[in-house]
Design a protein around this nucleic acid. Structure first.
Length: 275
DNA sequence: GCCCTTTCCTGGAAGC
DNA sequence: TGCTTCCAGGAAAGGG
């Protein structure tokens, strides 16, 4: 599932694909509900003839700055992009953008959870998104203040995009394992030294994810591919995620899978103890 | 206002 | 073998 490192890799791929300055000549919508805003007819009218001015990321959103609008895309579980010249519709294609050079950006989304928003300003959407964990504003002091202000369990706290932007199930499990914190520990009850370890772990697991160009799990129906169709490499670096019944890389205790806030959660029952 | 539950979706896996 | 049920999960909406 695309989280910050996967979205970052997609953005880097789009930038490397010479999409900047390209004009959108046409658009096809195969699943109307993918277009969250505005309604699909208005969306079509507004986006045709727009040019791509900037390509970026905010949290898990891909941000395409166009001539007059901002296109925000959230891939959720199974959204993917492929850029090529192939006109044939793929089985799970929901939207396609056709550029003035003939290339087609196919948006594939098996489970139809992904959403596109075409807005005049991205501000309204970004008001509710928290700190970028790889930006200078993600200081330990800022993170500590957020933790000390929440009685939520640490796992759902970290998954909540209002606090820290871009974390999902994979990188939260990895960061909590690295900091030796149980996912059900209440945020405000985490001690100072573990708060510091967690702050560092979040940055480390995300940077590693980007360095390995994302995490691709599974084979046939893998949930993440870059724009060029390349698989990520970070799955070989995971320490706990989807590694239940395997030994903990730190202490060799058998890793287990539990449920926290309705999410499948992977922990080492020896390293990650509730305080 | 905070926290928990439900909903949206498909297809592979598990159960019978 | 073939059918049904369960499960995966990000984020928004609804409920307590």
């Amino acid at each position: 599932m695309p989280e910050l490192p996967e979205v970052q890799t997609i953005v880097q791929d789009m930038l490397a694909s010479d999409l900047l300055g390209r004009k959108i000549a046409d658009v096809q919508i195969y699943w109307k509900r993918t277009i969250a805003f505005p309604n699909p007819n208005i969306f079509k009218k507004q986006i045709i003839n727009e040019s791509i001015r900037e390509i970026g990321r905010r949290g898990k959103f891909i941000v395409l700055t166009l001539s007059h609008f901002t296109l925000l895309i959230h891939l959720r579980m199974t959204g993917k992009f492929f850029l090529n010249n192939q006109k044939k519709k793929t089985p799970h294609e929901r939207v396609r953008l056709i550029f003035d050079d003939g290339r087609i950006l196919h948006y594939d989304d098996q489970r139809k959870f992904g959403k596109w928003h075409l807005l005049e300003s991205s501000n309204e959407k970004f008001d509710t998104i928290g700190i970028e964990p790889l930006s200078p504003s993600f200081t330990f002091q800022a993170f500590k203040a957020l933790l000390n202000n929440s009685s939520q369990q640490i796992k759902p706290f970290l998954l909540n995009q209002r606090h820290v932007a871009g974390l999902g199930n994979i990188y939260v499990d990895e960061a909590l394992w690295a900091a030796k914190i149980h996912p059900e520990q209440k945020a405000k009850t985490i001690g100072l030294s573990k708060q510091k370890e967690l702050h560092k772990a979040i940055i480390d697991v995300l940077k590693q994810g980007i360095a390995y160009m994302g995490t691709t799990l599974g084979t046939q129906h893998a949930n993440y591919f870059s724009v060029s169709g390349r698989r990520g490499g970070n799955q070989t670096q995971l320490k706990v995620f989807r590694r239940e019944n395997l030994p903990c890389p730190r202490c060799e205790t058998t890793l287990i899978k539990i449920k926290v806030a309705q999410r499948g959660t992977h922990i080492c029952p020896h390293c990650q103890i509730l305080d």
